[in-house]
């Protein structure tokens, strides 16, 4: 095998969940069978599958955080990012595939939050796979009707003076929030700023961390 997983480490070096050795399930058997059939029939290869897992593992909210930090420090980049999120992300070297990204900006008067009520669309080619809660009935059902209550459950209480814009990813676009740069960060480098940008700040269920 060109890519041996028997050491129980993922390609990124993290341990896989322990259920890798839990009793085999029907659906796991189906996955193995389909994967083997696709390889036998020459549709894909074990190496392609391993490379795809590596590519997905390599994507994380840290990538989006770098995009946000660049936008905070480079006004021309920010303008390009808001005009075309995909092109600006590629400009920074991120392999986002066919992702069509729209970046929505928080201001002192507007807070944006992202959802997919029909399934679980997420800017995965920039931020990696979505958190479990993003795919739940609770989040998908409620955030479009009572976003303030939902955000409060995440610990984010917004005054009525800030309008909320909910974005439902119903078709071909994906979204990230460009949060506002935290106060007191004028002296921070772009890399230090990126450390303040959380995944939830880019979904809109949180804010960036405060400067240390």
């Amino acid at each position: 095998m060109p890519h041996d997983h028997t050491d129980h480490l993922s390609p990124s070096g993290h341990p896989f969940r322990p259920d890798n050795d839990a009793p085999l399930t029907y659906w796991q058997v189906m996955e193995i069978a389909i994967r083997e059939l696709l390889i036998v029939k020459g549709i894909t290869t074990a190496a392609d599958i391993a490379a795809q897992i590596d590519a997905m593992d390599a994507r994380s909210p840290a990538d989006g955080a770098k995009v946000v930090a660049r936008a905070w420090t480079d006004p021309a980049f920010k303008a390009r990012l808001l005009a075309n999120g995909s092109a600006a992300s590629r400009e920074m070297g991120f392999d986002i595939g066919s992702l069509r990204l729209i970046v929505v900006e928080n201001t002192p008067h507007i807070h944006n939050v992202i959802v997919c009520t029909l399934c679980s669309c997420y800017p995965r080619n920039l931020l990696g796979l979505p958190p479990d809660w993003y795919k739940t009935r609770a989040y998908r059902s409620r955030v479009v009707r009572e976003p303030r209550k939902v955000l409060a459950e995440f610990g984010l209480v917004l005054p009525d003076s800030i309008r909320i814009r909910v974005h439902d990813s119903t078709a071909d676009m994906r979204y990230i929030v460009l949060p506002a740069r935290p106060a007191g960060t004028e002296e921070l480098s772009e890399a230090d700023l990126a450390d303040l940008v959380t995944r939830d700040a880019m979904i809109g269920t949180g804010l960036p961390k405060a400067a240390a």
């Binding site: 009707r145 909320i164 078709a171």
Partner: peptide, 14 residues
């Protein structure tokens, strides 16, 4: 029943 009537929602529609 709107939580805040002035909040908005954007969606992609064909």
């Amino acid at each position: 029943a709107a939580e805040n009537p002035d909040d908005t929602l954007d969606a992609e529609i064909f």
